[in-house]
Design a protein around this nucleic acid. Structure first.
Length: 312
DNA sequence: AAGATTAGCAACCGCAAGTAC
DNA sequence: AGTACTTGCGGTTGCTAATCT
């Protein structure tokens, strides 16, 4: 009986004919009674599956096949910092975007960042460390993304033992901040992140240190530093670093640093979120804590990573 | 050119809250 | 009030195209 029921339920990619049936149903009855689609024998899909298909793909005015704009990215990042992983809520601020879109976008971003950080720490700890075979395996064999951040970076403050460098070079190390550094005037310290640079960058934007320590910019800086001052990569580094001084960046130096101006003004929600949620979130603790491991990352730091040769 | 890796997307699952009876 | 059903959300997985080595 149960097996028979399961057999009747179709899964996997939707066909155009199924979409059409679903669209017809919605046109006739509205976006509800999803389960009746199956009970009427129109489709062998569950109500949940039908609803999901409608919401994510068939609903009118969706931005399908359209990458997130820079503005949308910033909105997501800002709202994620504010709301946590409330994708449905965040999506209400982004016309044409679904919660799934936002979730996938965020997930991709996290994976990229994790890989960058992971590679950076690999480079410093041991060159013999095996490289994760893929982003799937990364999650399985290494650590889940969030726990990786939680455990290794302690919500942005590098744990005391952690030493992250962009290369194995000993001439330019980034060391965990400790109280013993307090009198080291040679060191450039970033207390919130527990990072110090022995050689300050030539350009110093608000999030520069973080960007440097987590992106190829960092290695570029260090490589450049090791090489001659007149090398091409060094001069391009200077340009890149200068471009990091961007008004959208969070001020990693903390609330004490001059950051009274809002980073940007959030657009109004496309769908006005109900003031009182229909149901209480079951992730209250996460809500409070959000996914703060990205909270302070610059909104467009990946822009620098993606296209380091882009001119300002 | 071929295999490995990465990115992006689609869809499923489990859970929780709302709703109808 | 209790229960079954429906709806919505967030996490996760699987697939594929693009990119890299």
């Amino acid at each position: 009986m149960e097996a028979l029921k399961k057999e009747e339920i179709k899964k996997g990619p939707w066909k155009a004919e199924e979409d059409q049936v679903l669209i017809n149903h919605v046109n006739r009855y509205g976006p509800r009674d999803w389960s009746s689609i199956r009970s009427k024998g129109l489709l062998q899909r569950t109500g949940k599956s039908c609803r999901l298909r409608w919401v994510n793909k068939l609903r009118p005015n969706l931005k399908i096949g359209c990458k997130f704009s820079a503005e949308e990215e910033r909105t997501v990042i800002e709202l994620q910092a504010e709301f946590g992983n409330k994708w449905a809520r965040i999506a209400t601020y982004l016309p044409g975007r679904t919660d799934n879109d936002v979730k996938n976008f965020w997930s991709s971003r996290i994976k990229r960042l994790a890989r960058i950080l992971h590679n950076s720490s690999d480079a410093s700890s041991s060159s013999s460390n095996p490289k994760p075979s893929s982003h799937r395996n990364e999650g399985k064999n290494v650590k889940p993304i969030q726990s990786l951040y939680a455990s290794q970076f302690q919500r942005f403050g590098l744990v005391e033992e952690e030493v992250i460098t962009a290369s194995s070079s000993s001439s330019s190390k980034i060391l965990p901040y400790s109280s013993s550094d307090q009198d080291d005037h040679e060191a450039l310290r970033v207390p919130q992140f527990g990072i110090k640079l022995e050689h300050p960058p030539l350009a110093f934007g608000t999030d520069l240190i973080l960007a440097e320590t987590t992106t190829p910019l960092m290695s570029e800086y260090h490589i450049a530093n090791q090489q001659a001052v007149n090398s091409n990569s060094f001069s391009s580094s200077i340009e890149l670093l200068a471009r990091l001084d961007n008004p959208y960046y969070y001020d990693i130096l903390g609330p004490g640093a001059d950051s009274s101006e809002p980073l940007f003004v959030l657009p109004p929600p496309f769908f006005e979120p109900s003031p009182m949620p229909r149901r209480r979130s079951r992730h209250v603790s996460k809500d409070e804590e959000a996914d703060v491991f990205l909270y302070d990352f610059p909104a467009d730091m990946f822009d620098q990573v993606d296209d380091p040769n882009q001119s300002p």
